[in-house]
Design a protein around this nucleic acid. Structure first.
Length: 470
RNA sequence: GGCGGCGUGGCCAAGUGGUCGAAGGCGAAGCUCUGCAAAAGCUUUAUUCAUCGGUUCGAAUCCGAUCGCCGCCUCCA
């Protein structure tokens, strides 16, 4: 299996440090607002990667941090006049809700910065003792010049950075590139005790501290958006490796941006849609199909038209899954000759090549096509054929890619004891009678009126079924 | 200025030296089904890979130049 490693800028054979265990860390959200569909791209693609590793039999420990103390949270709490902790709680919960609706499997742990102050302070202390950091009146900075590997991830050279930098002038820093490990508390800011006085962690240090605590000093995979390469991930490497003198991460993976109107979607530009607003109109499967149809590392130009196309594409998969389930119900035992292995190996070959999900998606569609062809050509393929088909769809398209939900209830929910279902079927029966009496005006009227309220009738050889449109 | 990425059919997008006379999705057209539709299924849909040169027996794939687009270097997935 190959993974593109940002550190070496090459595809490398994936060999976990301690197989079959894989330790994976993904930079999570700062919980000060709802996340947008650009952020969702990273979360979804990280989810696909994690799930494929699990598909391959790895035991994945997946950690995603929640940054619950930071400038933006403090700003929001001042604006709204509520405690910073309340802001963080509110959006942490919202994050969990949205993640669930996006069919993202929960992380093994969601560590929070505020719950790891001991580890963070301990790490900063260690860096200070090492001579890798210095304290100026309660602000602790990392000394970039003392870390020889600085720039190895981003390919930046410190001297060039200094020249062209637009870095904020801070007289306390020995070098403009030095970054905060510990920030001295200002009035009305949340603060924690430390050897340097009251304060809070710098932006980068929490990820190092929590990654080490939950996954160890050297981990297999660390992933995040492209924009985190510099300075965030570069700084994480510096502070972690200066403390442990070990490699911090074996494989660095980065996700491409979601662009809209030729620009990166971002909060500051205001050109974003939140995941929750998009989910009101489109199913998670549609968004996941749109994302998995593009390689995770490249840019993706978003538009609603594209999402609408993906929604149609995911329906095709859903129809096939439904056909499989119906086939299973109605068929007897029987023999079949159908090469499932061929599709599994194509799927794996695609995903083994740096998680080539677009190719993997194509394999799923090829499978669906062949499934349909086989079904059209064979009267009774037998239960086992349908079982195996459902299994394929479940393992690949549902469990790994999340572009279809094989066992979702597409009919009316149980909540009303099936009353609505019976009601609609009553109308269908009335229409069928009208058709038998050649009263097409009435039949069409029933069909049109149901459509007006979002119930679409579908005639076929075996009878009439319905679909609820949202 | 430094560093990185991108340019493939109407739209999106894989492919990075021969099996490409280029996957897959959406769209479009035709067919099957139907009382008519819709839905569903089937079939068809790129002599061509931004442009121009070069390397090679052979290039969308390698090299060079040109044009266009995006990102990072400052908070950002």
């Amino acid at each position: 299996m190959l993974i593109y490693n940002t550190l070496t800028r090459k595809k490398e054979e994936f060999t976990p440090i301690n197989p079959p265990n894989v330790n994976m860390y993904v930079c999570g959200p700062t919980v000060y607002d709802y996340f947008h569909i650009g952020n969702a791209r990273s979360f979804i693609m990280a989810d696909v990667i994690r799930k494929y590793l699990e598909y391959k039999g790895y035991n994945v420990k997946y950690v995603m941090n929640l940054t619950d103390v930071d400038d933006k949270i403090i700003k929001k709490s001042n604006e709204e006049g509520v405690e910073a902790g309340n802001v963080a709680d509110k959006y942490s919960k919202a994050f969990m809700d949205d993640i669930t609706r996006l069919k993202i499997k929960p992380a093994t742990v969601y560590p929070k910065a505020t719950e790891h102050m001991d580890e963070i302070v301990g790490l900063v202390k260690k860096l200070e003792e090492n001579g890798a950091a210095y304290n100026v009146d309660g602000n602790v900075f990392f000394n970039v010049n003392n870390f020889k590997g600085y720039g190895k991830l981003s390919g930046k050279k410190t001297d060039e950075l200094e020249v062209g930098a637009r870095i904020e002038i801070n007289d306390e820093k020995e070098n403009p590139l030095d970054f905060s490990l510990w920030k001295k508390a200002k009035p009305n800011e949340p603060a924690w005790d430390s050897p340097w006085g009251g304060g809070r962690p710098g932006w980068h240090i929490e990820c190092s501290a929590m990654s080490m605590k939950h996954l160890g000093e050297t981990i297999d995979i660390h992933a995040g958006g492209n924009d985190l390469i510099f300075p965030h991930h570069e700084n994480e490497i510096a502070q972690s490796e200066a403390a442990t003198h070990k490699d911090f991460v074996k494989y660095w993976m980065h996700f491409g941006f979601l662009n809209i109107n030729q620009e990166k979607m971002s909060k500051s530009l205001g050109n974003f849609f939140t995941a929750r607003e998009v989910l009101k109109k489109y199913p998670a499967e549609a968004l996941r199909l749109l994302y998995t149809q593009t390689h995770y590392g490249g840019p993706l130009a978003f538009s609603e038209d594209l999402l609408a196309s993906a929604a149609k594409g995911s329906m095709k998969l859903k129809n096939a899954a439904d056909r499989m389930k119906e086939g299973l119900q109605s068929s007897a035992d029987g023999d079949f000759t159908f090469d499932f292995d061929k599709f599994y190996s194509s799927f794996e070959a695609a995903m083994d090549d740096d998680f080539n999900s677009p190719k993997a998606v194509a394999v799923v569609y090829d499978f669906v096509k062949e499934f349909n062809a086989y079904l059209n050509a064979n009267e009774n393929p037998g239960k086992e054929f349908f079982n195996k088909s459902i299994e394929f769809m479940t393992k690949t398209a549902d469990d790994v890619l999340g572009i279809v939900t094989v066992n979702g209830n597409e009919k009316v929910e149980e909540a009303d004891s099936g009353l609505l279902d019976k009601l609609i079927n009553t109308f269908i029966e009335l229409r069928t009678e009208a058709k038998q009496n050649k009263n097409y005006a009435l039949a069409d009227s029933i069909r049109d009126k149901l459509k007006d309220i979002g119930v679409v009738l579908q005639d076929s050889k075996t009878g009439t079924t319905y679909k609820i449109e949202n």
